[in-house]
Design a protein around this nucleic acid. Structure first.
Length: 467
RNA sequence: GGCGACGUGGCCAAGUGGUAAGGCAGGAGUCUGCAAAACUCUCAUCAUGGGUUCAAUUCCCAUCGUCGCCUCCA
């Protein structure tokens, strides 16, 4: 079975192949670090983490690069507002972003390059573009000339003529073409600046990604990802810059995730309608965020509202139910029943792979996993013991781990409280034997307030920490 | 104005030219002292109007609606 990925460049699902057998070179556009990351960043990071994990599950060795844009107007403005050093400010937000990613169980990137660390290569690329007449210098600024690139617009499906129509922005008169974009911006007094052949300044937004790709992955890469708001102009410009130098196709696959919305509008830092990752994680497990993303299609938009998060939380609890152990006092399943259980687990794995191979159809993959949850719970109800359940649960764990779900019970078990709770449960058993329902219900209710859930069955009582 | 995506049950959301996965919520049961969990059963003709076809939710056209991009943005 072959993996197929929807490629923005071809506008269809293409069979996934790599430049180098068994190895994937993958670059994902990270944030510009001037504010706390919001759920849109989380969505994007999760989407590509899931893709990356699945590629690794398929046996690929993935070199995963996610950059930080750490020098830009917004950062400088914010730093000036606060009266702090822009580099320190960027450092602070980068640290915060990394904490967020960790809390969401996102695998660390192989490399997290920063624009300011690859300045020599950025300058070198700009010089090459000037040398081959793809770019020109005006008063210390350098612009890329879109007319020098006959393919310009191939990713976003636009032509230079149609793009001018309706444009409401003021065009810099010094540009040769209105769509020309800055490769190098000359420094104003007090701004961070680097020396260059064109004077002190800093790189434009697009060139840094081209340069970091070149440095950390090479001239050609397998997958380039990001939010679909980056298709134009950012990724279009990356292609133009890189291919003007290499004359080779830059990225084989362009993957773009849908936007996170809040009340019928895109969530974004500039609009200001955002829920930060920190805010979300204060109230919900990271798994819920991930499951929310998994429930849908990565290319479609996602709209935040409390009701949907509540629904997702319920689904999350259902997944957790599959991990529970055997009921007390069970005798075990028969050999034929076990065969059916194992077959169900294996067919789930197959359905999972088929779903994921089809452009990471996580929604369908989750459906397969929920089927397995049902099968496991049925087996438990039918009297399977821990070892028998474990056979199916191993597959369940394999698949949910591949999607990056942790499904960890609250890490409070194993604490000194356990013995006391066991004691209360034991006392309550005696109360129940005496049919002292008032007291036994009170213990159950009070423990619930403390986050301990008691569940009675005819064979005894089990307890767990509330998630 | 241009480019693109989307519109599936109360909510979220897959999917296919031959009468629609999964999750949440709801209804009815089993179990239970009760509760909870789990299990069983149940719950849609796919925005609207045309067209193509033996057959369309799935293809084509139109209409309405929503969203994204065209300016920094994951």
């Amino acid at each position: 079975m072959a993996l197929r990925i929807y490629n923005t460049l071809t506008r269809k699902k293409d069979e996934f192949t790599t430049i180098e057998p068994g190895k994937v070179r993958m670059y994902v556009c990270g944030p510009t670090v001037y504010a706390d990351a919001h759920l849109g960043h989380a969505m994007s990071a999760l989407v590509f983490d899931i893709a990356r994990r699945y590629l690794e599950y398929k046996g690929y060795d993935v070199r995963y690069v996610m950059n930080f844009t750490d020098v830009d107007d917004k950062i400088i403005n914010k730093a000036n507002e606060l009266g702090v050093d822009p580099f320190g400010l960027a450092d602070q937000y980068i640290a915060g972003y990394k904490r967020n990613l960790e809390a969401l169980n996102i695998e660390p990137a192989t490399v997290n390059p920063r624009a300011t660390n690859d300045m020599p290569q950025i300058i070198e690329m700009i010089q090459k573009l000037i040398d081959n007449e793809s770019a020109y210098v005006v008063d210390g600024d350098v612009y890329y000339s879109v007319e020098a690139d006959p393919d310009y617009g191939k990713l976003s499906g636009r032509s230079l003529e149609t793009m001018n129509a309706g444009s409401r922005i003021q065009v810099d008169e010094r540009k040769e073409h209105p769509m020309d974009f800055a490769l190098w911006k000359s420094a104003k007094p007090g701004e961070p600046a680097w020396d260059s052949p064109w004077g002190k300044g800093r790189p434009g937004w697009h060139i840094e990604c081209s340069a970091m790709n070149m440095v950390h992955l090479g001239e050609q890469i397998d997958i380039h990802g990001g939010g679909n708001d980056l298709i134009f102009p950012h990724h279009e410009n990356e292609i133009a810059q890189t291919e003007s130098i290499t004359h080779k196709p830059f990225a084989r696959f362009w993957m773009h995730n849908g936007m996170m919305g809040l009340k019928d509008e895109k969530m974004s830092k500039s609009v200001g309608n955002m829920v930060t990752i920190d805010q979300f994680l204060r109230e919900h497990p990271g798994d819920v965020m991930r499951l929310w993303v998994l429930n849908g299609s990565y290319r479609s938009p996602l709209t935040y509202n409390e009701a949907v998060i509540e629904q997702t939380t319920q689904g999350y609890k259902r997944l957790l139910s599959a991990k529970k152990g055997a009921l007390p006092g069970v005798t075990g399943l028969s050999a034929s029943e076990m065969t059916k259980l194992e077959e169900a687990a294996n067919s789930t794995r197959q359905a999972f792979v088929e779903a994921m191979d089809d452009d990471f159809n996580t929604s369908l993959a989750m459906a397969a996993i929920y089927e397995l949850v049902k099968v496991i719970n049925q087996a438990r109800t039918d009297g399977a013991n821990d070892a028998q359940l474990g056979i199916a649960q191993t597959v369940f764990n394999e698949l949910t781990n591949t999607l990056g779900l942790t499904l960890e019970e609250e890490a409070t078990s194993g604490t000194s409280a356990d013995a006391f709770i066991d004691l209360l449960v034991a006392l309550r058993r005696d109360l129940r034997a005496e049919k002292n329902w008032a007291m036994s219900d009170k213990i159950r209710d009070e423990l619930k307030v403390l986050g301990v859930i008691l569940e009675d069955s005819k064979d005894g009582t089990t307890w767990s920490w509330e998630n």
